[in-house]
């Protein structure tokens, strides 16, 4: 009886929270903002595939955070007695040519993957957003200059440009991140500029100008928040491409250097045993595939939630 009454108190509290969040007359700034986020969350969880994507990303983040605890072996400890072992209860995903446990290496590799995509996102997205909104809002010759620079960067295939930068900067994961970030921002600038041009003529911008708001306040407070949703969606969808580019650079020996357990580099070293010991190359490949899929599913779900054209959210 005590448990059931405790339960009913819990559900009662839950209902009150729900009502508070969905209130049409919020009493504070925080309540208004949280209520808005809650409605977005309700839309998001309706999308089964997006939830799968979110689940994959959560597993990736958890694996990266807990890598030393959950990985059964040290990622870089060679054990030549057990090299190229197939999948077994001792080594769930087998071992590589130096006898290192592939599962442990993939778990530790998730840190590198996360490191790359987070850094690329926090470098490329703000740069693209700033360049795009400034070009779109100010217009004139500044717009022409910024957009032609963007065009020049867009004219090269991503991987080729990244390859050129890495060969100039020298191989290594930091340089790979810089190279990928340099190639990733132009599409964001394009998107932000296109959104800004549609927003710039809106009456609410005119109204703010009439109140004496300067260009910095207008771009930062009025234009950027409206560009942000489509940018977040685009960045999430690009994550898969960033992972693939990073893995591609690793595969070519220009990204993460041995013995780092970077997934692309792992595939590259497994390539020599592809026919006889297929798991050495296939397992990191599956990891790349699953994480890329996760980000794509998440991005699609976010698009439904964050679409700025969807009124009332």
């Amino acid at each position: 009886m005590t448990t059931s009454s405790a339960n009913s108190i819990a559900t009662h509290r839950h209902d009150r929270l729900r009502q508070w969040l969905l209130s049409t007359a919020p009493r504070s700034r925080r309540q208004a903002r949280l209520g808005r986020a809650y409605i977005a969350w309700l839309t998001f969880i309706e999308n089964r595939l997006a939830m799968i994507g979110l689940g994959i990303i959560i597993v990736l983040v958890a694996a990266a955070a807990l890598a030393p605890i959950i990985a059964p072996y040290a990622p870089n400890a060679p054990n030549l007695a057990e090299r190229l072992m197939p999948m077994s209860s001792a080594h769930w995903l087998g071992t590589d040519e130096l006898g290192r446990d592939i599962l442990s290496r993939i778990i530790h590799g998730s840190r590198l993957t996360l490191y790359v995509i987070v850094l690329v996102a926090i470098i490329a997205a703000p740069v693209g957003l700033l360049i795009g909104t400034v070009a779109g809002y100010i217009g004139g010759w500044l717009d022409v200059v910024l957009m032609r620079v963007t065009d020049i960067f867009l004219a090269f295939p991503k991987l080729i440009l990244a390859l050129a930068f890495v060969s100039a900067l020298g191989p290594g994961i930091e340089n790979a991140i810089i190279a990928i970030a340099i190639t990733a921002w132009p599409p964001y600038a394009r998107i932000a500029r296109a959104e800004t041009i549609t927003i710039r003529k809106a009456d609410f911008i005119k109204a703010a100008r009439l109140q004496g708001a300067g260009p910095i306040r207008l771009i930062w407070g009025h234009v950027m928040p409206l560009c942000l949703s489509s940018l977040i969606v685009r960045v999430t969808l690009d994550m898969a491409g960033i992972i693939l580019t990073a893995a591609g650079l690793g595969f070519l020996g220009l990204g993460a250097q041995p013995p780092l357990p970077e997934w692309g580099a792992m595939i590259s070293s497994g390539r020599k045993f592809m026919l006889d010991q297929w798991w050495v190359a296939a397992m990191p490949g599956v990891a790349i595939f699953v994480v890329s899929l996760g980000f794509n599913l998440l991005g699609d779900g976010l698009r439904d939630v964050l679409d700025p054209k969807a009124e009332g959210r």
């Binding site: 700034r29 009456d203 609410f204 109204a207």
Partner: peptide
């Protein structure tokens, strides 16, 4: 409908 910023309270 156009003169109020859609993301501002």
């Amino acid at each position: 409908y156009g003169s109020l910023h859609p993301r501002h309270t």
